[in-house]
Design a protein around this nucleic acid. Structure first.
Length: 570
RNA sequence: UGGCCCGUGGUGUAAUUGGCAACACGCCUGACUCUGGAUCAGGAGAGUCCAGGUUCGAUCCCUGGCGGGCCAACCA
């Protein structure tokens, strides 16, 4: 429902929140709201999971409800403790807290089994001894009905005996399965006697060898929700067809209404990346990235190392919204969310990535002066400054000089003036080139000594300001310039027969600059510190590889660059 | 020769019990500026997939098309 805030703007709710408010108003669950985030601990959490986390935990916060963290660890072959641990760290990093509500589906195995016996006794489930291939064969296709298994009409007594022996471990993998007895001709494939329990002689990371009967998703998930008394069970769109079995199982075991209800929403899809577990694993295993926490990866671990803040991730999820229409998020929205958060929190520093030497010919050889430079621009409400040394020889960015400047180029060129950030206005008097290659190797400039902290006395306007560092004082640093992982927004785009998404990987997703020259105030930088390198972008000192004396910075995101747009046009 | 879901500017979302479409990002102008950042002001851009129907009036309801997605793992 629309509500007006203090400014009189109307805030509208997404369809899930609308449903929740409706349920609260009608008293369906006595006003209670209980959600859950149910990851399978078989991989790293990524930004797509973040959307689900923000939704489930966010909704619980907004409606004074609860959100459980529940590991859907029903597959003994894939679930591991390592993933359980990393997921908790990631969720905490995002700023959410499950308090004492940490649950494991593997703790419910006994209950799942009890209900299975009940279904068998009531002739709602049967033991099928067909092979995997036979079962697939008899299931039919989306356009053809399935056929009943020859074991479908076993008596409840026979089924119960078999089920107990399955549980006791008398049979090898695949010998029998427990199936719901529904309808082999059902138009919804999910309802054609779905498998409930299967035999798997594997060691479970929490239950050891205690069990050999493991539940399938369709049997387990709804019951997990019911056991925890969840009210609103959110899942992604592709589970729409499974809603029917979700309700069937709940009815079959006798869970009374009002009870948990499944609602589907669109998963996050982000331009220039992939978010499927299968593909992420390939990127790691095939060495396209350095690991799960490579700053180019869309994993929580990756974007954290990249320097993205949890606030930015939450902001993105908020901006993306939630709907039941498949959608793809513009990468620019992600970048906006990052910059919008980093702008006010990042102290400014100067760093030169592609150095060009500048000699201030009218500045004394051995002189130096230390400038007190504010860490934040005046429109950021934060205090702080650092000292920056100025001297006769400087580094500036090679791209800030052009011998034959195009129109609207406000930087340095022969005979032209620019402001050195926080320092003097200088004029380029002479261009020194390598006699062999013709490459510009040095600029000889003069400075206007009256322009430190002041505009030129004669009122002339200086259009450009560029960044610089004192050559003598600058610190070397490794700077890793990260860019989008894929060269095209949709990694599946334009593929020929036999090619796959890895063909669209961006070969320049990582460009290492070593050494870049950074101002000396960064010397004692603790790993994980975020900065804005002025006119360049937001950077974070690498949590693993950076150390005082051996600085390593990751570029989180570039600054918006309106000059690049102007330059690209001409 | 199936079932289910969906179709609003470039993108993501809105539009209260049906009252001629709003916000954000992006894009374009301009202002300001010791960051070509930020900020501020303004602008372009959809007539709501199509066709019928109901209605004084349809993005919203009905019918039929068209287009897209999901479903045939002992994965989730």
């Amino acid at each position: 429902m629309a509500e007006s805030d203090a400014e009189g703007t109307v805030e509208s709710k997404d369809f899930l929140r609308t449903k929740i408010e409706n349920d609260i108003r009608t008293g369906k669950y006595g006003g209670r709201v209980a959600t859950r985030f149910p990851p399978e601990p078989n991989g790293y959490l990524h930004i797509g999971h973040a959307k689900s986390i923000c939704l489930n935990f966010g909704v619980a916060e907004e409606y004074a409800g609860t959100c459980n963290l529940r590991y859907d660890d029903t597959n003994p072959d894939t679930a591991t403790q390592e993933f359980v641990d990393s997921m908790q760290a990631d969720i905490r990093w995002l700023g959410y807290d499950w308090e004492d509500r940490l649950y494991f589906a593997s703790d419910y195995f006994e209950q799942f089994y009890e209900w299975a016996e009940k279904l068998v006794r009531e002739d709602k489930a049967y033991v099928d001894s067909s092979s995997e291939e036979e079962i697939r064969e008899l299931r039919g296709t989306v356009t053809e009905p399935g056929r009943p298994s020859p074991y479908r009409e076993r008596t409840p007594e026979e089924n119960l005996d078999l089920l107990r022996r399955m549980k006791a471990g008398e049979f090898p993998n695949g010998a029998h399965v427990l199936r719901a007895k529904i309808d082999m001709a059902h138009p919804n494939m999910v309802m054609r006697d779905p498998l409930l329990l299967r035999i798997r002689h594997s060691t479970h990371y929490r239950r050891g060898d205690e069990w050999c009967l493991y539940p399938m998703y369709d049997y387990a998930h709804c019951l997990e929700d019911a056991i925890e008394d969840i009210t609103h069970s959110f899942c992604t769109l592709e589970f729409r067809n499974n809603r029917e079995i979700y309700d069937w199982v709940l009815d079959a075991v006798g869970i009374e209404r009002p009870r948990t209800e499944q609602t589907e929403f669109a998963r996050l899809e982000l331009d220039y990346t992939v978010l499927s577990k299968r593909r992420l694993i390939r990127l790691v295993n095939e060495g396209h990235v350095a690991g799960w926490d490579d700053p180019r990866m869309p994993t929580i671990a990756g974007i954290r190392r990249r320097g993205v803040t949890p606030e930015a991730v939450r902001s993105l999820c908020e901006k993306v919204g939630v709907a039941d229409v498949k959608s793809r998020t513009d990468y620019a929205l992600f970048e906006y969310a990052i910059r919008d958060d980093l702008n006010w929190r990042s102290p400014r520093r100067l760093a030169v990535l592609d150095p060009l030497k500048v000699v201030i010919t009218d500045y004394p050889e051995d002189a130096e002066e230390w400038i007190d430079a504010p860490s934040f621009p005046r429109d950021v409400d934060k205090e702080g400054s650092r000292r920056m040394p100025f001297s006769r020889e400087l580094w500036i960015e090679r791209a800030d000089f052009m011998e034959e400047p195009p129109r609207k180029f406000h930087r340095l060129a022969p005979g032209r003036e620019v402001r050195l950030r926080h320092a003097y206005v200088i004029r380029c008097d002479e261009v020194v080139k390598d006699p062999e290659t013709g490459e510009v190797i040095e600029l000889r400039c003069s400075h206007d000594p009256a322009t430190m902290g002041a505009n030129p006395a004669d009122g002339r306007r200086i259009k450009g300001t560029i960044h610089w560092v004192s050559a003598r004082h600058a610190l070397p640093a490794e700077v890793r310039l990260y860019d989008r992982l894929f060269a095209v927004a949709d990694p599946d785009e334009g593929l020929e027969e036999g090619e796959d998404f890895t063909k669209n990987l961006n070969p320049e997703s990582l460009v290492v600059v070593n050494p870049a020259r950074v101002e000396p105030s960064l010397a004692d930088d603790p790993p994980g510190s975020r900065y804005q390198f002025e006119r360049s972008g937001y950077f974070v000192s690498d949590a693993l590889d950076s150390a005082p004396g051996a600085l390593v910075f990751n570029r989180t995101v570039t600054l918006r660059d309106s000059w690049a747009k102007i330059a690209a046009r001409s």
